[in-house]
Design a binder for these strands. Structure first.
Lengths: 222, 222
DNA sequence: GCGTTTTTTGACCAGTTGGAAAAATGTTAA
DNA sequence: TTAACATTTTTCCAACTGGTCAAAAAACGC
């Protein structure tokens, strides 16, 4: 019994299994994030991972299993910044650091961002359910906090969900549309400075866009 | 000579050629925009266009030709809203209507937006050059205008290029990440109302984020 | 060191894919 | 009407794809 395959099922996982599976996921992230699910081939991933296709398939029975493993891990860390919004904090600093964290993720994990973007673009066939449950639930939760802040007059009244969309869009843009950003900024501007510039702009945009007009916020530091 | 193929080369184009090529492009837009270039198959496109694969290949010799034709046409209309920014207009209203137009394009031409997003995500292998010339040039042009407005104190000082990124990101998000937006808003909210809500939020965000602080819009004459 | 289990490999397969060739059918202008 | 041209269909193919399988090679527990 237990077909022996080094897959998810109960078996304890050997050292090699852990290492090789990690290696494969790393390689697959590269490939899936730039070609999408259908556009990526097992051969490509295997080559990127430095092993033969059958060997790769020994660890992940099907192409879809690799993708699923990646997406599941991704979504978890991807939502961490949103989870970290503190209901008891000050609205503007909380939003400010949320934007910061999202921007850092775009800078430090662009492949994950693109993997996600690819999946969504293609209609999210493999994660629709997660979006409708986990994501939506978390958003609903945070929306309550945002609404409270607005009711308390500590945040200007805006549609909280669309506010989140705007934050997601602007920050992830620097990962997903990286080549366009680079093309527009020009190769001379190619350093990582664009993330600092982006942070500055987004601060101005969101913080002065969200500060209540009557109550002058402390805001601007640095 | 002139291998006879109904391709781009000089030949005058018959009625059927015009119609069929249009039909193919329409079908291909559907397929490419949801599967990306590699993920789309000629068979799929042919079926969507209601013809056989060899018949389709009579009109477009290679898969890439279809894609190229789509992208080229797209990029042109895609940049129209940016072109329409009037150097002699009032800064805030100009930006406001730019955002409006971009949002309308996301609403009315989501497939085009996704086609573009797909291409960029995958590293823009087929349009990199256009980005570095046409797009960059147009952006540079508009950046000059924005900078002048800022120098005149009619617009708050921000990085103009990143401002454009923010506008692109937030508006296109509603086309590219449509399924996520729907999932978060819930199916009950499924009408087109989300675009109005988005427009409201983006107005608040960008307009109060960009209005100069000292010079109150209407009140004082300068 | 040795038997068992895990890992890797090489050969293979059936289905799909992009595309070519040629024959068959339509269309049209003189 | 008919010859010239445009369009469509049929047939085919070579390369690639996801995936299997049995046997060889390592690694491991003792």
């Amino acid at each position: 019994m237990t077909k022996g395959k080094a897959s998810s099922a109960g078996r304890p996982q050997t050292r090699i299994q852990r290492e090789k599976r990690e290696l494969i996921l790393e390689a697959a992230l590269d490939v899936f994030s730039t070609h999408g699910f259908r556009g990526a081939t097992i051969d490509q991933i295997a080559e990127a991972a430095g092993m033969s296709k059958p060997n790769l398939l020994y660890y992940f029975g099907r192409k879809e299993d690799i993708h699923k493993a990646l997406i599941e891990r991704l979504l978890d860390t991807w939502l961490d910044p949103l989870r970290a919004i503190n209901p008891d904090g000050e609205p503007l600093p909380e939003i400010r650091s949320y934007i910061r964290r999202k921007l850092e993720m775009a800078r430090d994990y662009p492949r994950e961002s693109r993997l996600f973007a690819n999946e969504i673009l293609q209609g999210a066939p493999r994660i629709m359910e997660l979006l409708e449950t986990e994501l939506r639930q978390l958003v609903d939760e945070k929306v309550i906090i945002l609404k409270r802040w607005m009711a308390e007059g500590r945040l200007v009244r805006v549609d909280p969900r669309h506010l989140l969309f705007a934050i997601w869009a602007t920050t992830q843009h620097y990962a997903d549309f990286d080549v366009q950003v680079r093309a527009v900024l020009g190769s001379d501007f190619a350093g990582e400075g664009r993330f600092d510039d982006a942070a500055r702009l987004l601060d101005q945009l969101f913080l002065s866009g969200l500060a209540p007009k009557n109550v002058k916020q402390l805001a601007h530091s640095q």
